[in-house]
Amino acid sequence: MSRADTTAELRDEGPVRGVGAVGEAAPVRAVRPLWSLGLLRNELLTTLRRWRTLALLAVLAAVPVLIGVAVRIETGGAAAHGGGDGGGQGPAFLAQITNNGLFLVFTALAATLPVFLPLAVGVVAGDAIAGEASAGTLRYLLVAPAGRTRLLLTKYATVLAFCLVATLVVAVSALAMGVLLFPLGDLTTISGTRIGFAEGLGRALLIALVVAASLTGLAALGLFVSTLTHSGVAAMATTVGLLITAQILEQVPQLHAIQPYLFPHYWLSFADLMREPVYWDGLVKNLELQALYAAVFGSAAWARFTTKDITA
């Protein structure tokens, strides 16, 4: 009988305590715009604290070190031989590194942009939603409630931030190696004119920003893939697979009709920033294409994620 009494009590007190709490009198906790940004801050910190993210960044930082050391040993060896065949066959900037360490920045970005940088971005973007789903943490973020649109925007902003950080890691590592191993000074542009070191440094920063922007299309593509599956690994593999496929299609001459629509098509146009005057055509086309990819796949990701049943 005691249980029945308890029940009756609860019923009686319903209007006072329980229902009062449910009714309109209850305070509705307000959403503060500034507080909404807390998730972005947390997401950035969480991403950067992952062992995987740090490993990716470490690999990216190692690439300029390898190039710098290799060039240094190569030219050192050539000097020892006393031979006059110093002119290498490498990328446009490679030959200039020995004259000016700043060129290591351009070389390192040109070397990492086709594979290493997009690979890292593909991993982070592919894992963004699918990784949370496979860990089960997605449901807890959503009942927090993070809000689906807000969570997706937070994830995309974080992937974009990672694009920038990854590019800057390459650039800064290359700059450090350039300063360490090679002389600095005025540099010669592709057009043959000379610009001061300070302006050269400015161009290097601009190039890094353009390289980071080149990755935004892939970031949106990866995010879309990430909303399609509950497996983080599958999403990462698919995104990286799409990257490799696009790169292969770029190499097939018969497919020249579709190539201007592939996201890596204008990637290497960043070299045009080293012309005097700057040749903007390819740069603008690149940014337009990236914006198109971001818009199309960003919308697709939004449409998918906001209507999806979260069963993981």
Partner: peptide, 13 residues
């Protein structure tokens, strides 16, 4: 828990 709480836009930081 800090992350879970940050996900709630009505939670006072």
């Amino acid at each position: 828990l800090l992350r879970q709480d940050a996900a709630d836009p009505t939670a006072d930081p």
